[in-house]
Design a protein around this nucleic acid. Sequence first.
RNA 1: CGGGAUGUGGCGCAGCCUGGCAGCGCACCUGCUUUGGGAGCAGGGGGUCGGCGGUUCGAAUCCGCCCAUCCCGACCA
Length: 571
Amino acid sequence: MRWSSLFIPTLRDAPAEAEAASHRLLVRGGFIRQLQSGHYSMLPLGWRVHQKVAEVVRQEMDAIGAQEFLLPAMHAASVWQTSGRWTSMGDEMFRLTDRKGGEFALGMTHEEVFATLSLELNSYRDLPQLWYQIQWKFRDEPRPKSGLLRVREFAMKDSYSFDLDDEGLDRSFQLHHAAYLRIFRRLDLDAVPVEASSGAMGGSASIEFMVESDAGEDDVALCGGCGYAANVERATAALEMVENRPSSDIPESFPTPGIRTINALAELGHPPIHQIKTLVYRIDGELALILLRGDHPFLEQKFADATGANEVVPAEADEIRDALGASPGSLGAVGVDTLPIYADEALRGRSGMTTGANEDDFHLQGVDVERDVRVDTWVDVRGILDGEACASCGEPLSVARFIEAGHIFKLGRKYSEAMGVSVLDAEGVSRVPTMGSYGIGVGRAMATVAETHHDDNGLVWPMAIAPYEVVLTVAKVDHAESMAVAESLYEELRGAGIDVLLDDRDGRAGVKFADAELVGIPLRVTIGSRGLESETLEVSSRKTGEQTNVPLKEVAAYVVNAVTAGRAANR
RNA sequence: CGGGAUGUGGCGCAGCCUGGCAGCGCACCUGCUUUGGGAGCAGGGGGUCGGCGGUUCGAAUCCGCCCAUCCCGACCA
């Protein structure tokens, strides 16, 4: 294509609201434009990258024997009512009503619809099946952010496996696991598989593919020693022994006027590790106390996973006061027997603790957790901290920010059962297939590459997904010889199947160089009178900045080689 | 939903406090010069100042409500 006739609206300044590097550069480079919060238009350049990412995914899915479908994006309510998710998905689901008053949803994911199709599987001989699609998903995200990283409308490759038994599911899961590693490698993403919480999907096991980036939204714990890797929503760590402070026979109340925080209490000589943090939550509508060591953060997701609770929300100050007679900052569990009490495992065996007295401006010291608190349920709900020891090898764990680029789930029979799927096994017995589901967000993958592949001058696309592989930059378009050389090289490269962009704009060379770099085309051939005098053209690499003068006659072959090598990288 | 912030030509911003002709840079159009790293000069086009209401002789500016957008947290590919 000729740059002069393309719509590539590059910007010198990024919009003020763009914060993440990928967001700024994708907008500046003319790849995307926002329509509303969480909804982006793909401009020609952006759509080319998007399609190339999708094609990499498609090839690797096909390679494990998966079959491509395309399902409706809009679903009748009844489909979701059958699985129970019409209600459980809550506000996250976009809903609409047709002219006849019928209720519909825009699909957030497609377990139900694929499971409906699987009703036509009749025999164990039909299994296993691996089905996928690349389709738009709609999620009423509470907070879209960071450009393409978190949006309300996005293309997702979602696949689903149907197997007779657990061994089959393991195989399908492993096939996906391996395919995902290949996909991310081809995208030049350093994706780490980590143990994850299954969240709203349910199911027995799930692995997230995480790419380290400050723009991420998840914290992941990694062990440099044994390779343990887990989302902090699930991660555990070895707990170092804490020497209990001397305890008293009964908890002693002492005045703490104005003391409302762990830190303030610490300044009075009660270190956080010797404090009990008391949180009041509404768990599926019921108030409950959750106790942690003073220095430990509470992770709601861990709690939900451990207890099976759906709704885990902090209680309001007035309901806390009604229940305990004190305000946050002075709360404790000693003597409480009207509310369920959950305690984090880190409090087991602890004594000599300090906690709120359920009376404003008073705390208790000398508390022995197991003697003085009526714990109903012990749970592991604390967030682990950077530097804690790995539970399996003792080396320090590092905790860092990651982008969730893919997620694979063992679903089990939740959806197949709900939708009434069954096949006959070899003995003629009816069996419910077990399912897996596997997702990669295409736009998010694209943004993740942008996030991890850029420099001060702009984007640096890997050859595999670059919008164009080569740009021919004509320094002076009114120089007839330059244009003639450029035209003939352009035709030759096009003929060789190279995605080549001819920058024939009547502008200054500096502007064209800057645009080529901003847009991130991997290779640039500069065509100008300077090189032509010596019968050479300058080929430069976006990634390394390396410039090579190539004899005119060899340029086409040189470029074809470089592109071919680039395409094959990481395969 | 809780907390913080912002809305002024396509993009980046000033003006607002202290009410009085809507400005600057980039981009865009025309002409001349320039031409291998975001050119120079001259001329020019483009703005319901987020919306509605109020105060006032007069509102971008003051007051109220609403909307939108961004950032931090709870949720997800």
